[in-house]
């Protein structure tokens, strides 16, 4: 296994200044494994903890966040390591793409500097300014940026949102990482640009065989790109399976609701479906299954007990008491 996450928990200490400090459980015991060359999507609403999961393993949690459990990447422990040891992996073995390209790039530095510095810190003594510039320009070309030589000397604000996201992708790819974590890479972009970025990611995956973890709330986006889908709700994995298993044999009522709420389903019923109720308050999670207050098939025990993970097929797992949906 390339990446093994075992029972990862992420907590935040919340201080409103009014009440006692509270602990917010963003991720509540997540385990998952990822093989070299595998392509996975993590799907969930905002607040489901899907981003915090990966921020935790990259050591990017804000100061009030803490992570527990164990994570190993190619036999190396990742969780709660010093910045120094993490920096041998961050940007080199694992690349990251962020949600908002408008703010992910430093507005005060030229694109070229922000690209080549990745090579500067990871190649140490082998770093050569000229070859770094050449490789950065090649990479800009690779992510289909026009006039890469000219763009190399641009400032971020001189580029459009889609272009900036391409720069961020180029930045993540420069060191040929084994894994790329893409955290909602298209959410902040226009719809037409979204498709281009997804096409680019697909192309990268096909050519470089780099594993991609795509974090998104947009289920249909995932279909063409990923092998496996992991559905998260309120900090827990509720269902895992292949694209086909999730799309055609979804077991968890939340996954089903999510599928029903996608825009492609509007034609059938004529109106857009939404999931009833509100996502749970992370400071005040319901006992038992977190989805129970919104679940159409809720039973008495759902309100008190957490449903265990159940195997449907080899790779198809679901956490729900209800069988044979």
């Amino acid at each position: 296994m390339m990446l093994t996450i075992e029972n990862l928990r992420v907590d935040f200490t919340v201080d409103s200044g009014i009440q006692r400090k509270q602990t917010l459980q963003a991720v509540r015991g997540v385990s998952l494994e990822l093989d070299q060359g595998e392509n996975v999507a993590i799907v969930g609403e905002s607040g489901s903890g899907k981003s915090q999961l990966f921020n935790a393993l990259m050591g990017l949690l804000p100061p009030n966040g803490s992570a527990h459990g164990s994570v190993s990447f190619n036999q190396q422990a990742l969780l709660n390591q010093s910045d120094k040891s993490l920096n041998k992996i961050r940007g080199k073995e694992i690349g990251m793409i962020f949600q908002d390209p408008m703010t992910a790039l430093n507005p005060y530095l030229r694109i070229g500097k922000q690209l080549t510095e990745v090579l500067e810190v990871h190649e140490g003594a082998n770093f050569n300014k000229e070859s770094a510039k050449r490789r950065a320009i090649e990479m800009l070309d690779r992510v289909k940026i026009k006039d890469p030589e000219q763009r190399f000397n641009s400032y971020p604000h001189e580029l459009s949102g889609g272009m900036r996201q391409r720069v961020v992708i180029a930045m993540a790819l420069l060191c040929k990482p084994k894994l790329i974590i893409a955290d909602e890479p298209t959410t902040a972009l226009d719809v037409t640009v979204q498709t281009e970025i997804i096409r680019l990611l697909k192309d990268i995956y096909r050519k470089e065989r780099t594993s991609i973890v795509l974090i998104t709330h947009d289920l249909p986006l995932v279909a063409g790109l990923c092998d496996r889908i992991i559905v998260m709700y309120a900090g827990k994995i509720v269902e895992t399976g292949t694209v086909d298993e999730i799309f055609y044999k979804a077991q968890h009522p939340y996954t089903q609701a999510l599928l029903a709420a996608t825009p492609t389903n509007t034609e059938k019923s004529g109106k857009m479906l939404a999931i009833d109720g509100q996502p749970p308050d992370p400071l005040n999670l319901p006992a038992g299954c977190a989805f129970s207050p919104r679940c159409a098939f809720v039973e008495e025990r759902c309100k008190t007990e957490s449903p265990p993970e159940r195997k449907i097929d080899a790779g198809h797992l679901v956490s729900c008491f209800r069988e044979n949906n």
Partner: peptide
Amino acid sequence: LIPNEIIA
């Protein structure tokens, strides 16, 4: 305090 993801 906590990233946009979790706004309680």
